[in-house]
Measured scan of single mutants.
Amino acid sequence: FEIPDDVPLPAGWEMAKTSSGQRYFLNHIDQTTTWQDPRKAMLSQM
């Protein structure tokens, strides 16, 4: 499912887009990137 862009990312995360428009996520805390939206895990725990 798609999460609306107005749902905030967890602390330390940033959303970016590739030149082709694909979204990816940067974790500044552990210096990693992922295609997986970290908000999905956050919302599934609620």
Results as ranks from 00 to 15, higher is better:
V7P: 04
F25H: 00
D30A: 10
D30R: 09
A41N: 05
Q36F: 07
D30E: 14
F1D: 15
P10A: 02
A11F: 12
N27P: 00
R39W: 01
S19Y: 02
P4R: 14
H28N: 09
W13D: 08
T33R: 04
D5I: 08
G12L: 01
R39K: 03
E14A: 11
I3T: 06
L9Y: 07
A41G: 14
D5T: 08
A41T: 14
K17P: 04
H28P: 05
T33H: 13
K40V: 12
A41C: 07
L9T: 07
N27M: 00
M46P: 04
A41R: 12
A11K: 14
L9V: 09
T34I: 00
H28C: 05
V7M: 14
A16N: 09
S44I: 03
S20Q: 14
T34C: 06
S20I: 10
N27G: 00
T18E: 08
S19I: 13
T32H: 09
S19W: 05
P10D: 02
G21H: 03
P10L: 01
S20T: 15
Q22E: 15
S20F: 07
F1C: 15
Y24D: 03
Y24A: 02
E2D: 14
E2L: 10
K17E: 14
Q36K: 14
T34S: 12
K17F: 15
Q22Y: 04
Q36T: 09
G12Q: 05
S44R: 12
A16S: 13
F25K: 00
A16E: 06
F25D: 03
N27K: 01
G12F: 07
L43K: 11
Q31D: 04
A16T: 10
R23N: 12
Y24C: 05
W35Q: 04
K40E: 05
I29R: 12
F1Q: 03
D37W: 00
S20G: 12
M46V: 11
Q31Y: 09
M15D: 06
K17A: 13
Y24N: 06
P8Y: 02
E2M: 06
Q22P: 05
T32C: 13
W35G: 05
Q45W: 07
F1I: 15
L26N: 07
D6C: 06
Q22T: 07
A11Q: 14
R39V: 03
L26H: 02
G21S: 06
G12R: 04
M42A: 14
Q36P: 00
D5L: 06
V7F: 08
S20L: 09
K17H: 10
M46C: 01
G12K: 03
R23T: 14
I29H: 15
P8V: 07
W13R: 03
A11I: 06
E2V: 09
K17G: 04
S20N: 14
W35D: 06
D30Q: 09
P8F: 00
Q22C: 09
P8E: 05
M15V: 13
W13Q: 05
R23V: 14
F25I: 00
I3V: 05
P4S: 15
P4A: 14
M15G: 05
M46Q: 15
P8R: 09
Q31T: 02
E2Y: 11
T18I: 01
T33S: 04
W13F: 05
M42V: 12
N27W: 00
L26W: 04
P4N: 15
W13Y: 12
M15P: 05
Q36M: 13
P8K: 06
T33M: 05
I29D: 12
G12M: 05
N27V: 00
E14H: 04
M15F: 07
W35K: 05
L26Q: 05
A16L: 08
I29N: 15
K40L: 11
G21I: 03
A11R: 13
K40W: 07
T18G: 04
W13A: 04
T32N: 07
G21D: 09
I3W: 01
N27Y: 03
V7K: 12
K40P: 06
G12A: 05
Y24W: 01
Y24H: 01
T18P: 02
R23L: 12
S19L: 11
Q36N: 08
S44Y: 03
F1R: 00
E2G: 08
L43F: 10
A41Q: 14
A16C: 08
E14W: 01
F25M: 02
Q31K: 15
M42G: 13
I29M: 10
R39E: 01
F25N: 01
D6T: 15
T33K: 06
R39G: 02
T32Q: 05
M42T: 14
W35T: 10
T33P: 02
K17L: 12
L26E: 05
T34A: 04
M42C: 13
R39A: 01
A11M: 14
W13I: 02
G12V: 01
T32R: 06
E2N: 15
S44W: 08
G21F: 01
L9M: 15
